[in-house]
Design a protein around this nucleic acid. Structure first.
Lengths: 252, 252
DNA sequence: AAAATAAGTGTAAAAAGTACATTTAATATC
DNA sequence: GATATTAAATGTACTTTTTACACTTATTTT
């Protein structure tokens, strides 16, 4: 890795003699910020930290970091995520690159934002204190620094959008979950209510759910059957379109 | 503008005394690259240029530029687009930020890619020669430098995806177009064929089309009626979801 | 034993999607 | 000027999906 890096510096020097053009250009700080969503069975939550540097020290912020010389954005985002939650293999997707010249008052910083969906129950609380991180209900989150609120807004929209067409919300659920829990989640995301008979039928028709023998007795006297996600089908069907194209099978 | 810039340099210097942290970070080159799609009535095309710098000078490339100190990505992309096509107010959407450390062999360069949809008939050919730009059918485009082919692939996918749910393809058509032309475009994008009776009914049901009195006689003896896009409805309905959510009216 | 709670389930009517063939308008050809 | 050619335009019956809507069931609490 170090060797490769040295070669690349050498290359820069060699080329810079023949090709002064790159040299004139300004370089910028580049950061990765993560919008981390969790679901506690009742409402959608957001993991935030208290910023450690001036300016805005102590204010709430998304979790982020400058990008390192040898890492790409995905690696950077995963590094941050792992530091903050102890989790690996989390659902992660690039949201948008934010590049307003004034977004960071100290110095122009490009931010590539990612959003992550995690099973909040797997979140390791002990990491919390070290980084002053905290879960906030999305509807009562504090003010955030810089353009972070704009990022969260965009992430919420994107999550809604994706959830409308793909079974992405399973990423927020624990391994075992009930249909009413799932419906709660969908209703929270879309800020509406669904008829439970129709919801159940639609979800079952995807064939993504495997019924378990035990029940969740926490939320009702009767108890609701647990289900697990059929991960094979999930992986196979995730990218399938759900509508509009007359005959989806025709699309290669 | 210059004044503002000077203040921001001053700020950096002031803060750097109290807050050395930012100073340690590496800065990177940041560019904007544009995937420009056009439709000539028969097939989807891509606007490419011959690169002017070493390395890879003379090879085909997406149109791009380093980002300037005072401009954000949108501005940069519009600047490039205007330089290359003479057009303004073009449909433009951020695609993805590409950050592989080795993507540019000279020096690590972040690229924020945008895709643009233009009415190819409005493209001003005289700008062509100055920049060595050329339209290529998407299915027979040349090899591209760096990771530009990957960018084009992603842009194609995104275009398909969006077109499946939103009436975005009108951006590629001239002001007046026929239903068979529109169907051609959809068939090209989705690489399939549709039944023309069903296609026509579905398109008409969106109420986005306004029938004109004249016909296009270029492509058939009988001639096909021209239509125009109802821009009011288009603007109002663009973001409306098309399916999956049981009762879309319930979504706020 | 009765009340309370949330889970689970079915059906009929409406809307949307699909498959499919003939007629029409205009030009080109003999 | 009659005939052939071409692509545009249009309708209907069938299938699938979506929607609206209410009662029964299992279990715990009183």
């Amino acid at each position: 890795m170090i060797k490769k890096h040295q070669i690349s510096i050498l290359e820069v020097k060699l080329f810079s003699i023949a090709m002064p053009k790159y040299q004139k250009q300004t370089r910028f700080l580049v950061a990765v910020d993560c919008i981390i969503f969790g679901f506690d069975g009742t409402e959608l939550k957001l993991l935030l930290v208290q910023r450690e540097l001036e300016p805005e020290k102590g204010k709430w912020s998304l979790i982020g970091s400058f990008i390192r010389e040898e890492e790409d954005f995905e690696k950077g985002a995963n590094r941050i995520l792992n530091q903050m939650t102890g989790l690996e293999g989390v659902y992660l997707e690039q949201l948008h690159a934010f590049g307003n010249p004034d977004r960071d008052p100290i110095e122009r910083t490009i931010s590539v934002a990612y959003f992550a969906l995690i099973d909040i129950h797997q979140y390791e609380r002990q990491l919390n204190d070290e980084y002053h991180a905290e879960w906030f209900p999305i509807k009562s989150a504090p003010r955030l620094i810089f353009d972070h609120e704009q990022m969260v807004e965009m992430a919420k929209k994107r999550l809604r959008y994706k959830a409308a067409f793909h079974p992405i919300l399973f990423e927020l659920l624990p391994e075992k979950f009930t249909v009413p829990q799932l419906q709660n989640l969908y209703e929270g995301i879309f800020d509406t209510v669904f008829d439970k008979r129709n919801f159940s039928r639609k979800i079952q028709s995807t064939k993504l759910l495997i019924k378990q023998k035990d029940k969740d007795k926490e939320n009702s006297k009767k108890g609701a059957y647990y289900y697990k996600l059929d991960k094979r089908r999930y992986a196979a069907n995730f990218h399938a379109f759900l509508n509009f194209i007359p005959n989806p099978d025709n699309i290669k």
